[in-house]
Design a protein around this nucleic acid. Structure first.
Lengths: 207, 207
DNA sequence: ATTATTTTGTACCGTTTCGCATAAAAAGCG
DNA sequence: CGCTTTTTATGCGAAACGGTACAAAATAAT
């Protein structure tokens, strides 16, 4: 059984795929630097279809950023999950940093690098309150996701009771932000992978 | 004695002041988001004078970013200088973080916030190799400035011999990067000032 | 005073930008 | 088969964009 076909002419595109293409276009060229023509070429749609399907440029951008945020949340969440083979919380921190490299580092296959939101929303944040809010929401969610896990770790005894959870969370999220910026500047995965273990040890009060 | 006047009609503006105004315009609106008209209005010059005096848009942008880089280098350098009242290296680290807040945090008087380069060059980095290089140069200089000071500290016994200097430098510069991003997202100086001491302690192996 | 030189300001050029109006196309419904 | 509904595609239009031509203005040199 298939869902009942809607009334008129059927859509000629997959909305998910179009949003993903739009994300990649903005990810590469930024908000102001990506025109509707570029967006149309990237998605395969023409401008009126784009507009009818996703809204105006700003709306498409914000939807694309939300999509990236979903993707990032998922990966960071998975990295923070405890695993049987973890010998200390250093392993969890290292996994988080690897996730940051995978999420915010170079994506060779699609020719982009950096956190899509941080790399593009910062430029607009002071002139567009809604985009600033998207950026702030991403930062806040990253901090929150980390702090929740760090508190749990402290409660479970994975981290010493005197650990400054807030400072540690700030440093971890900051490192993730910076990994995105560094890769945007051309740094490779290998450049950053080789730092992960020493960073994890330096970040973790558990020696 | 004054310098011999050049031949033709004298300039009606101070090049330093114009470049500073251009910096503030790009700082606020980003590269793609700032038009030559906006730039002309901000500097008080008209477009032809701007072009004759500073070059085309990209050239003006790059000169403005270099100006910001000079400003940042100076402040970070001053913060890293040893002071008689320092009781431990934690004080130096805290001073560096305060400098990051002053340089990359909100500048209420001129209505901008964030590191001018990171906040605006990241959006262009993947499509403009020269701008990417400006960004990379800033990141590299921050790391270099920090590492030089950390090595010195280790040599002077301010830091334990087993300190992982590279990791510590990476974390410190990353924190500075992130402070710029957070303030771009709307975080206030006070939000971040209140974290400085705990961050400095968490970053410093000297407890 | 005249000339040479440089800066200034208006006005313009061709292109790009975003958004939409409008008609053709593709489907279901009666 | 017509009729309605929805999507597609061409293409328009007003505005904004980066850049420059050109003449007027301001100064030094002769």
């Amino acid at each position: 059984m298939t869902t009942a076909r809607p009334r008129g002419r059927p859509r000629n595109y997959d909305p998910e795929q179009v949003l993903e293409s739009a994300l990649r276009a903005f990810w590469k060229g930024g908000y102001s630097g990506t025109s509707l023509d570029t967006l149309a070429a990237a998605t395969g749609l023409n401008r009126p279809s784009l507009y009818a399907g996703l809204g105006d440029k700003r709306t498409i951008y914000i939807k694309a950023m939300r999509r990236f945020q979903d993707y990032a949340r998922e990966h960071f969440g998975a990295a923070l999950q405890a695993r049987p083979e973890d010998t200390s919380f250093v392993d969890v921190v290292a996994r988080y940093l690897h996730a940051a490299i995978n999420v915010d580092g170079p994506h060779e296959s699609i020719g982009v690098s950096g956190c899509a939101v941080i790399s593009t929303a910062t430029a607009e944040a002071l002139t567009d309150p809604e985009i600033r809010q998207v950026l702030d929401n991403v930062l806040e969610e990253m901090d929150h996701q980390l702090l929740a896990r760090l508190r749990e770790a402290q409660a479970q005894g994975e981290l010493p009771p005197n650990t400054d959870i807030e400072a540690m969370g700030f440093l971890l999220s900051s490192t993730a932000h910076s990994i995105g910026i560094r890769s945007r500047a051309g740094h490779t995965k290998r450049d950053m992978e080789k730092m992960v273990d020493s960073l994890a040890r330096a970040l973790c009060p558990v020696k």
